[in-house]
Design a protein around this nucleic acid. Structure first.
Lengths: 245, 245
DNA sequence: CGAGCACTTGATCGCTTTCAATAGCTGTGG
DNA sequence: CCACAGCTATTGAAAGCGATCAAGTGCTCG
């Protein structure tokens, strides 16, 4: 189980064209291959503790991990959602600044930190891709700041759902004209931690969106969206229309 | 006035050792020198409009600029505060994602985007420094997410003041054992935009902190902090003690 | 002296939180 | 097969915090 990915070649890797290694040529891949190893984590398991010494960096290969920050009295804020191909860790810093937790079962492609750092210094294709990914994450973090600082609970829920829909759409780019559906990868509590709400408010607002026909639910996790524009409107984002899919 | 910085040599630049050029050798500086130019902005002036075509990137040389995002109905959230040496713009993206506004009079050291992008590709010292700065900004953005999502109004104000104090301390590293003082570089409204509050709440909480002796005010902008640990406690941050200064 | 601006302060409203009870689902063991 | 524990989610009622609406203060600049 643990070794399911142990012998996957980079060239066969599902995140080959999106991860930090996306621009590497075969030669560079070979060098990465030498310092990489896979690790598996069960849902709920902590991958990295904030403040811990980081001896590796890596990419999420499958599953979903979350980046969270906790205050002394227990208040928690999720500050990032890590999907397949997302990068974990910070070259040039010895300790982790946030907790990283496996939200689902997770497989990570890890690189020992020191060798990876020297590789970065020598491999512009990796450094540039990492810069690009980091800039993307920064933009995403700043959009999230608008959500946390200014949006209502209802808008927050609608925003979260539309972001999940968008990510689904970019990953498996199926242009089914049918009704959009997604599975929420998070519990109500995790959504609350992500949105800066309580789990009760999350539940209430989901019920309200359902009652108003913006979404419909089958079970607790499966969401259908009859009218994506309506959802985007509820999210309070610029409604410049169907840039989705 | 506009040309005040027109002929400043990089080697004489006040942000030489902190900006994106920090690690450049003399040869690399010469190449930057060829594509750089200075621009001045008055307080209140917009430097870049969100969505606009970006034909330059650059560093804040002096003054303070802010990065803001605005919703259609006018709700605003500041998503970054740009101090001297901070980098503006995104290599590899044609349009700006946020508004950039001069909070005080600002001087920027600009590079035409295209030449800068090729320079990045050829100059690891610049690319690496930019990656490092971007990672720092990402961490800062994530800390801000905790503030926006989970902190009370009082904690937000205390956090903002302590961050300003910390930055002052790292810039002009004066270890005066005397009482710490800072000038707030923002109006109440700008603080509100940064903290996800209204200006009335900002004003009220500042008054409350004053009444409780956590801070004292001379005029509207000048703040004295009799007990920095007390302030940090009010900010709700980990009180692992005097890592300041 | 009055206009304009930044800020403060007061009173009230309303959204989200808090506290609490209940429902639904899953797995375990008698 | 049912009872029950444990967990997640929903729903209700009440409280609290920050927003909103509204005056009023203090300062600068014409």
């Amino acid at each position: 189980m643990q070794d399911h990915f142990a012998h996957v070649q980079c060239s066969d890797c599902p995140i080959r064209h999106r991860a930090v290694c996306a621009r590497c040529d075969q030669d560079e891949l070979n060098r990465l291959e030498q310092i990489k190893y896979y690790r598996s984590f069960q849902a709920g398991q902590t991958i990295i503790w904030s403040g811990d010494r980081m001896d590796f960096v890596g990419s999420v290969v499958s599953g979903i991990a979350s980046l969270t920050q906790t205050m002394e009295d227990g208040r928690r804020q999720m500050v990032g959602l890590l999907l397949p191909s997302d990068f974990v860790g910070r070259p040039g810093r010895p300790t982790a600044a946030f907790d990283v937790t496996a939200t689902t079962d997770v497989v990570m492609c890890c690189f020992r930190k020191k060798p990876f750092e020297t590789l970065i210094a020598e491999t512009p294709n990796i450094a540039q891709r990492l810069l690009e990914m980091t800039l993307d994450e920064l933009d995403a973090a700043r959009e999230w700041m608008l959500l946390l600082g200014r949006k209502t609970a209802r808008e927050k829920i609608a925003s979260l759902i539309s972001i999940i829909v968008r990510r689904e759409a970019t990953l498996h780019k199926r242009k089914t004209a049918r009704m959009l559906t997604v599975d929420l990868p998070l519990t109500r509590e995790e959504m609350a931690d992500y949105l800066g709400l309580t789990l009760e408010t999350v539940s209430r607002q989901i019920s309200a969106l359902k009652k108003d026909g913006v979404i419909s639910l089958e079970g607790n996790r499966h969401v259908s969206i009859p009218d994506i524009d309506r959802l985007l409107e509820e999210a309070g984002d610029d409604t410049d229309g169907g840039m989705l899919v």
